[in-house]
């Protein structure tokens, strides 16, 4: 694994999709008027005959994808996460999930990574998709995972929701990183507290773990790129080896990763104090940039450190997180 500050790359998903589609002729690419923002301008250039512009009409786009999938195609449907899950929810359920068709819904700009206001922030997409039977839900953390996840999800017989960051994508893992749709990974070990993270919160969890370890707290970090089906065995193993658990998700704490972990612990009768970091049942208003939203709504590295510190009843004051490096090229809401 690399050390921060992580290098970033552009369009790893777009490149991986073109490569995959060149090998598999049944792959189609659908867009809902956010082509460049979803990195699929690359697909449009490389394979225009398999590129379908559905316009800004998500319900129809998902319904069409269902029809295409029934006739043997493998449609990848692209828009922002909000519009991929909220607008066409009934179509996702009836035209795709109930018949368990291999449609891939790819939603960009997760959680409060968008300063575009509540209408553009997918803070509930994981919860919505988790609630739908037959759906697989993937929320990856870096460019390496994106490259690995993409071929992997083509083998899932039913529908998949893939949640992707937009813009500069960090490279956290080494090239030999192994990705599995069936297993979460312990990437740092320790026996006091477990930080369980998905997607954009993994880098914050790793930064918090470094500070906590320096302060003498044994910190385990569990990466959970697949929120559904959850690798319950690894989650239980991780939780049973520590005194307390903190989950971190760029999403509301209701119905996402934190809920999935809580359900797993409760179901197994494993009692561990648990705190869920994420949006505390609120919409996120009023920002020029994503970092200010992460600070204001308690999704920063310091929030993770403070939460772990308090939860363990550690003495004195919690260590201070190093200031986050400024991220170049912050994108606009669109």
């Amino acid at each position: 694994m690399r050390n921060p500050p992580y290098p970033t790359v552009l369009k790893p998903y777009g490149q991986a999709l073109v490569k995959l589609a060149q090998e598999r002729s049944e792959i189609l690419c659908l867009t809902g008027d956010l082509t460049r923002q979803c990195e699929i301008d690359l697909f449009q250039e490389a394979l225009p005959e398999r590129f379908i512009h559905a316009g800004m009409a998500e319900a129809n786009m998902v319904g069409m994808a269902g029809g295409l999938a029934r006739r043997g195609y493998l449609p990848f449907v692209h828009t922002f996460g909000v519009f991929a899950t909220r607008r066409p929810l009934d179509q996702i359920i009836n035209a795709v999930a109930y018949p368990s068709l291999p449609v891939r819904l790819v939603g960009f700009m997760p959680g409060i990574s968008s300063p575009g206001g509540p209408s553009h922030q997918a803070i509930d997409d994981v919860a919505l998709m988790r609630a739908v039977p037959n759906m697989t839900v993937v929320d990856v953390a870096d460019a390496v995972e994106i490259e690995r996840a993409l071929p992997a999800i083509t083998h899932v017989p039913g529908p998949v929701y893939l949640r992707l960051k937009r813009g500069e994508i960090p490279v956290i893992f080494d090239d030999d990183h192994e990705f599995s749709l069936h297993s979460a990974q312990v990437i740092e070990d320790g026996d006091d507290i477990a930080l369980i993270a998905s997607g954009m919160m993994l880098s914050a969890a790793l930064a918090a773990a470094a500070e906590l370890r320096d302060a003498g707290i044994g910190t385990k970090v569990l990466n959970v790129p697949v929120v559904k089906p959850l690798d319950e065995e690894t989650v239980l193993e991780a939780a049973s080896g520590v005194r307390a658990v903190v989950t971190a998700e760029n999403h509301t704490v209701i119905g996402g990763l934190g809920s999935a972990v809580a359900e797993t612990l409760a179901g197994a009768g494993l009692g561990r104090p648990l705190r869920r970091l994420g949006l505390q049942d609120t919409f996120a208003e009023g920002a020029k940039s994503a970092p200010s939203l992460f600070r204001r709504y308690g999704l920063g590295t310091q929030d993770l450190i403070d939460t772990a510190w308090t939860l363990l009843g550690a003495p004195g004051t919690a260590p201070r997180a190093a200031p986050a490096p400024s991220t170049p090229g912050e994108y606009a809401p669109v």
Partner: peptide, 27 residues
């Protein structure tokens, strides 16, 4: 307009002045 904490967000919200209704999710 568009700055941290402002009610005048670039994409309209429930706090937006000047109109009785707006929505950033189109249509």
């Amino acid at each position: 307009y568009g700055h941290d904490g402002s009610a005048l967000e670039a994409i309209g919200t429930e706090r937006s002045p000047a109109v009785d209704l707006t929505c950033g999710s189109l249509g």
